[in-house]
Design a binder for these strands. Structure first.
Length: 475
RNA sequence: GCCCCCAUCGUCCAGCGGCCUAGGACGCCGGCCUUUCAAGCCGGCAACACGGGUUCGAAUCCCGUUGGGGGCACCA
């Protein structure tokens, strides 16, 4: 049987990195098995759903390199993959379930419901609600609940958790159709999974406790239950569910911070799964080859930003230079607020490889290249205080002016030779003597390699900056 | 309160009864290289939560304890 999986986010927020990983695992599983990956929108919560989020989710998935075979913007045999378009289907299903005796209109008032829950709790029983106030015919203004079979239990083999069992005494008779006639998540999601022929439901562990409800519903709908796989959640450094207070949680945020999609998908995949012993830098293709839900870890993983950063650096260094230029040039231009002309582009291309070797984030490129395109240079106050207040600063800067001014061949090699001569002349170490020149020319104590930077900047601008710094030092 | 899930270095993962004096990666510490910052190279610190079983033999299987996480909506 062909594997059919689905990723079914609710457009009630930006695509969360945890959801992104769920999507990735679904996709990997489908691709590994030669199956079908379906993208659906679980937007039954019309209050909180927004188009902006809907689009964020689609673009996030595409950015990661995931594609889908059926569903949103692709279509397929089911016409629509948006739950808000299928409201009639869900209502009809709910009514059929009532007719078949699997569900009932709940006549209870909110007070009676509350009372029932309190009673259970005070008796140290599970507060599972049993719907003591049933109505059979159509009762407008009342919600429909699914009647869990009791006494009974649901037991199933979860692909990642193994055998799981829930006693129905601990499971609510849950609402499937709200009193306003709209479906709840349980109904809509299950009906869709049945209608779309989903064979494997791969989702977060947070809905593991709802699984007996979904299995009961599926069976009542007359379909064989899907195989389930519940993924452990991603936690913050404190071991609690990853949330805003740990930093950024949306995929978009990482994208904007300068992370590469290859690094993100690789890191997310590694968080709870190993492509092989002692191997963790792997392409999407390799992941597809090796992925299996049975190998996914059962314990929750802590999101480690430091490791993500390291991995991003690995991917940046692995890029072909033109590719690096292509991806980082727009960032540099955005940082400057203008486009670069042909000459400036050449400068950018000259220093880009030097930055590529040392950057962990693409967003480091604008700050590292700024000195090439901004006149007059802005000095970083911290760097100035740290370097230019030292006694050797004046000597080094003025020595550099003298040597470089006399230089006939303006190339990295000659510049290095000239400046090293200056260091010797004044008895300065490279560490001490070159830093003031770096600050004078780039504005910062952290920059691409100095001699190359000087060559790129050109004689005239380099000397002007050294003069400018010398003037400030004298003042 | 009730239910469920989980448990190997600080973090992620390997280990699926003997190959384990427990391996890799990130991070951290020290060193080398070095014009800053990185990168690279070398070395180091660091874990099987605890208690019972099962077995000739347990990180690996079973039970319990403890600890952590998730869920208990007319939200998904």
């Amino acid at each position: 049987m062909t594997v059919r999986v689905r990723f079914a986010p609710s457009p009630t927020g930006h695509l969360h990195v945890g959801s992104a990983r769920t999507a990735l695992y679904n996709w990997l599983f489908a691709r590994n098995r030669g199956g079908v990956f379906i993208l659906r929108s679980d937007d039954t919560d019309t209050e909180r759903s927004e188009v902006e989020y809907h689009e964020d989710i689609l673009s996030g998935l595409r950015w990661m390199g995931l594609d889908w075979d059926e569903g949103l913007e692709v279509g397929g045999p089911h016409g629509t993959y948006r739950q808000s378009d299928r409201l009639d289907r869900y209502r009809q299903a709910a009514e059929e379930l009532v007719a078949a005796g699997h569900a009932y209109y709940d006549l209870a008032t909110p007070e009676q419901l509350e009372e029932s829950r309190k009673a259970a709790q005070s008796e140290n029983r599970s507060p599972a609600y049993r719907g003591e106030y049933r109505g059979e015919g159509v009762v407008p203004g009342k919600p429909i609940r699914f009647a869990m079979r009791r006494p009974h239990a649901t037991e199933f083999e979860d692909l990642v958790r193994g055998s799981v069992r829930f006693d129905h005494d601990d499971v609510d008779d849950f609402v499937i159709l709200r009193s306003d006639g709209t479906p709840t998540y349980h109904l809509a999601s299950t009906v869709d999974d049945v209608d779309f022929g989903i064979t494997h439901v791969v989702r977060g562990e947070d809905i593991l406790p709802s699984t007996p409800k979904h299995i009961a519903l599926t069976t009542a709908l007359g379909a064989p239950p899907a195989t389930y796989a519940h993924l452990a959640l991603i936690n913050g450094p404190d071991g609690k569910k990853l949330s805003k207070r740990h930093g950024h949680t949306s995929l978009r945020a990482y994208r904007e911070m300068g992370y590469l999609p290859e690094a993100i998908s690789n890191y997310l995949a590694i968080l709870g799964w190993a492509p092989g012993p002692d191997e963790e830098i792997v392409s999407l293709d390799t992941m597809v080859e090796r992925f299996d839900l049975a190998d996914v870890s059962r314990n929750p993983a802590v999101f480690d930003l430091a490791k993500l950063e390291w991995m991003n650096g690995v991917y940046i260094r692995a890029m072909a230079v033109p590719d690096f230029v292509g991806r980082s040039l727009p960032l540099a231009e955005a940082g400057l607020g203008r486009t670069l002309d042909a000459g400036e582009r050449t400068l950018f291309e000259a220093v880009a490889p030097l930055i590529q070797e040392r950057a962990k984030l693409l967003t480091e490129v604008p700050e590292q290249t700024r000195f090439l395109f901004t006149d007059p240079i802005e000095y970083d106050p911290g760097s100035w205080d740290k370097v230019m207040t030292k006694p050797e600063a004046v000597v080094a800067v003025e020595g550099a002016i003298a040597r470089l001014d006399a230089l006939s061949d303006w190339s990295t090699g000659s510049i290095e030779e000239a400046l090293r001569g200056m260091l010797d002349e004044h008895g300065l170490s490279a560490g001490k003597g070159l830093q003031p020149i770096r600050v004078a020319v780039t504005g910062s104590s952290v920059s691409p390699p100095l001699f190359e930077s000087l060559e790129a900047l050109g004689r005239e601008r380099s000397l002007a900056r050294l003069q400018e710094a010398a003037g400030r030092l004298r003042a």
